[in-house]
Design a protein around this nucleic acid. Sequence first.
DNA 1: CAGTTTATTGACCAACTGGTCAATTCTTGA
DNA 2: TCAAGAATTGACCAGTTGGTCAATAAACTG
Lengths: 215, 215
Amino acid sequence: MALRSISEIRRLELKQAAFEVMQTEGVQGTTLEKVAQHAGAAKGIVLHYFKSKKQLFEHAMRHANSLLRDEVAARLRRAGSPSERLWAIIEGNFAPAFYCPPVCHAWLSLCAEVPRDRQLERIQHVIHRRMRSNLRSALAGLAPADEIDAIALGITTLIDGLWLRAGLQSGGFGQREALAQMNDYVRHRLGEEAMTGRSAELRALLADGKAVGGG
Amino acid sequence: MALRSISEIRRLELKQAAFEVMQTEGVQGTTLEKVAQHAGAAKGIVLHYFKSKKQLFEHAMRHANSLLRDEVAARLRRAGSPSERLWAIIEGNFAPAFYCPPVCHAWLSLCAEVPRDRQLERIQHVIHRRMRSNLRSALAGLAPADEIDAIALGITTLIDGLWLRAGLQSGGFGQREALAQMNDYVRHRLGEEAMTGRSAELRALLADGKAVGGG
DNA sequence: CAGTTTATTGACCAACTGGTCAATTCTTGA
DNA sequence: TCAAGAATTGACCAGTTGGTCAATAAACTG
């Protein structure tokens, strides 16, 4: 997608910068000054493109999530079978560009603001709804209808939990351990036939069959 | 445990007040003024008992967690079999006094500060270490040795994820749904023999065998 | 009771922050 | 070229916050 005006370029730069500052400073420590500086501009410019700090953060959250959404969508497009779709979702959520301590921390920090910002709450709600919808569609061919909701919830909860731990930045798990845990869950909850959709990279990464230990 | 001096009483009051303010305002919005007011005192008194705001928050986190720790410990004392110990841990983490949106939100908010406060990080580390140790000891009699770590990690991750969702305060799950999800995991990962340790209350709450849907 | 320690208060300060605004520079198109 | 509009800047403001401090009240002690 091409960026039409300078205005749109600047807006993109600024929300990107905001999210990057959040990765090290948290929402708490992300000031307009720091965002502007990180984008190589003066502070005033930020409020020229965004009505308020709150709105900047909301756009930053939306933008950051749209990258993850696109990552998953691209993998889903390449997936054929239900089990491939399932693993497209899971592997997309643990792609190195997203599942890393700084990004998880920024996301965690934004989550902590959700109860006090109705707009953030809406965004979060959309994210969860899309995740559930994706999972339901993939699971439809893999599990009895009356178990799909429980399994979808189990998977999203595990993903959330692993992201949370990664966001703590200590005692977190690397991509390998995280995917091994997802592996463990899916194998035991859905059975061997749900494992055929894993990518070759994932199989290689996990060196199949090994257990996953705690950190 | 009796509180010896007035000083200790005040300190307890203040960290309790701090945690309660966090439940509605988040770490970000918890100011010394608000904490003092919530404790019915003047702002100056807070810094008379705690060296700094950071230190107050650290003590508040420790205190809040010690309540949860005691809850689990009390249930563990009443537990006999490994499966009873397992469910003591799980049910303790979803006791109504702890697993509720305000408390989960305060905890979530504190987690978001972990990467920028080495002391909070240490506390978080101790919490996770205790959880893993408790789970390992309970699981030792329920699963093959080489699967224990994976299962312990799965359980803590699910608990973290469910707390996170509850902390978002919207789209969160009630105690019943959360425990149903833990039920689902343990039954499929450990088998029916691991289900005997559930309390009568939990069995009644779940009306056994029903699936858990997404919210 | 006198004196010493401890608890408590509220005024005060310096730093920071989000937001406003007038002035200036840059772009653009007729 | 030149005027109109957009982009950009930095000074400025008002409110808030963590933290300090001197003064006062209360509690304790010998």
